[in-house]
């Protein structure tokens, strides 16, 4: 066991973790933050995507000990002072979620995507989100939401 310390959503946190603990399990089980989800065991579904030092990462592909000292943002950290992040708001406005299970990872991936490519086309958005599976929405409204969120984030 090792003590892993990192900053999650702006707060310094630390907990004990075994060497083989995945970051996603560390977040869910050791830190008790269950907004980040697990949908597969082959790093395909993207339900576990979080931001690590400003890049979206499938948190099932990283060990907790590798996250030592990093800045992590999870879905719980997107809204500030009760105001939804523009991407969260865009998902709500465009009915871009149904069961809500893929939503945390989808939001983080979308924010990363449009932060790096603020003028992403529909094709670029679709390609950029191909690592996030959604079984409910058929992606139509997710794409619309990402476009709307991108416009809002550009301000």
């Amino acid at each position: 066991m090792a003590t892993v310390s990192l900053t999650v959503n702006g707060k310094v946190m630390s907990a004990e973790a075994s060497a083989d603990t995945l970051l996603v399990n560390f977040i869910r089980e050791n830190l008790g933050m269950t907004g980040t989800h697990v949908g597969c065991d082959t790093s395909q579904c993207g339900a576990c995507v979080v931001m690590v030092n400003g890049d979206s990462v499938k948190s099932c592909t990283m060990l907790a000990v590798q996250a030592e000292g990093t800045e992590v943002t999870t879905v719980e950290g997107l809204a500030s002072n009760g105001d939804l992040h523009p991407m969260q708001q865009a998902f709500h406005d465009n009915h871009a979620l149904q069961c809500g299970y893929c939503t945390p990872g989808m939001l983080i991936s979308s924010i990363d995507l449009v932060t790096k490519n603020p003028n992403a086309t529909e094709a670029e958005i679709r390609h950029g989100l191909e690592g996030n599976l959604c079984r409910c929405t058929g992606y139509h409204n997710i794409v619309k939401a990402v476009q709307a969120g991108a416009a809002e984030m550009k301000g």
Binding site: M33, T34, G35, T36, H37, V38, T74, V75, E76, L78, A79, L84, Q88, F91, H92, D93, H95, L97, C99, G100, Y101, T103, P104, L107
Partner: peptide
């Protein structure tokens, strides 16, 4: 009407069985 249930899912406060 925009969905009432969205708020908890958008902010990571959904309560799924594994939670």
């Amino acid at each position: 009407v925009k969905r009432k249930e969205d708020g908890r899912f958008l902010t990571g406060k959904g309560r799924f069985t594994d939670d």
